[in-house]
Amino acid sequence: MNRDEKAKIIQNIREKANRSCIAVVTDYKGMSVEEMTQLRSNLREHNVEYQVVKNTLARIAFEESSHSAIKDKFKDCCAIAYGFDDPVVAAKVLVDFEKKSKKFQTRFASLDGKYLEGTSLKALSELPGRDELLAKTLGTMNAVPTNFVCLFANVIRGMLNALNGIKEQKENA
């Protein structure tokens, strides 16, 4: 591989790292092609890219990226998962695959430039995703006006019941 090819690879890695909100470094040693294909398709469904990298090229690329916290940690067989939308979803997919596979392992990650150990990544994967949090927030915001309307409807209903009672009393008298 000549210098130009290496420069293109470094630029590609740096570009993906700068666009991503999370970069997870994994160990894929011993995985079969079928397992890798399955992992990549699972990740692709959630807008996460998975790339096998050379350690030296990754170190150089991550030096000037938003995930420079992990630049010195690349050792052995490394592959990087870049999460572009929701970091929790990327972590969930990787941790779930790690539970199923005996050979796949998540090592560490960088979340918006902050270093995360493997245990922190597992804790991140247990959090609710962005869509779920938005739904809960919307439900909470919707509950206040709904309860307000129900409260006034009950006041009006009580008033109507009282007026109907007075009407019936006058009719009977």
Results as ranks from 00 to 15, higher is better:
L39K: 00
V89G: 01
E132N: 04
L43G: 00
R3W: 06
M31Q: 08
A135D: 08
N164D: 13
A135N: 11
E45D: 13
S101D: 08
T56V: 10
A135T: 10
T37E: 02
R40K: 15
N161L: 11
S66E: 14
Y50K: 05
V89F: 04
S120D: 12
K8N: 14
L138Q: 12
S101E: 07
M1F: 09
S125Q: 09
A90L: 01
L116R: 07
E5P: 00
L133Y: 13
I70M: 12
K103W: 03
R59M: 11
I166V: 12
F74S: 03
E168Q: 14
F108P: 01
K100I: 07
V93R: 03
G129N: 15
S41H: 14
K100D: 09
I80C: 05
S66K: 15
T119P: 03
K92F: 09
A23F: 05
L94A: 02
L116A: 05
M159K: 04
K122W: 06
N42Q: 13
C78D: 02
C78E: 01
F148Y: 11
S20G: 04
G165R: 08
A162V: 09
L127T: 07
F97V: 04
I13P: 00
L57I: 08
M31C: 06
R19N: 15
E45Q: 12
N2K: 11
K170L: 13
V25E: 01
L57R: 06
E132Q: 13
G158R: 12
D76W: 11
Y82V: 04
R59W: 07
R19P: 01
K54C: 02
E126W: 01
E132F: 04
R157V: 08
N147L: 15
E5M: 06
D131C: 07
Q11P: 01
K102G: 14
A123H: 14
Q51Y: 10
G113D: 05
Q105C: 02
G83I: 10
S120N: 10
V24N: 01
I13E: 09
K100F: 00
T146V: 15
K99E: 11
N147R: 14
Y115L: 15
E126C: 01
F152D: 08
P87Q: 08
F74R: 05
M1W: 06
A81N: 00
L121W: 00
C21I: 15
V25I: 14
D131G: 09
R59V: 07
L151D: 08
L39T: 00
A123V: 09
M36N: 10
L111F: 11
L94G: 02
I9H: 04
E45P: 04
R130H: 14
N142T: 11
S110G: 08
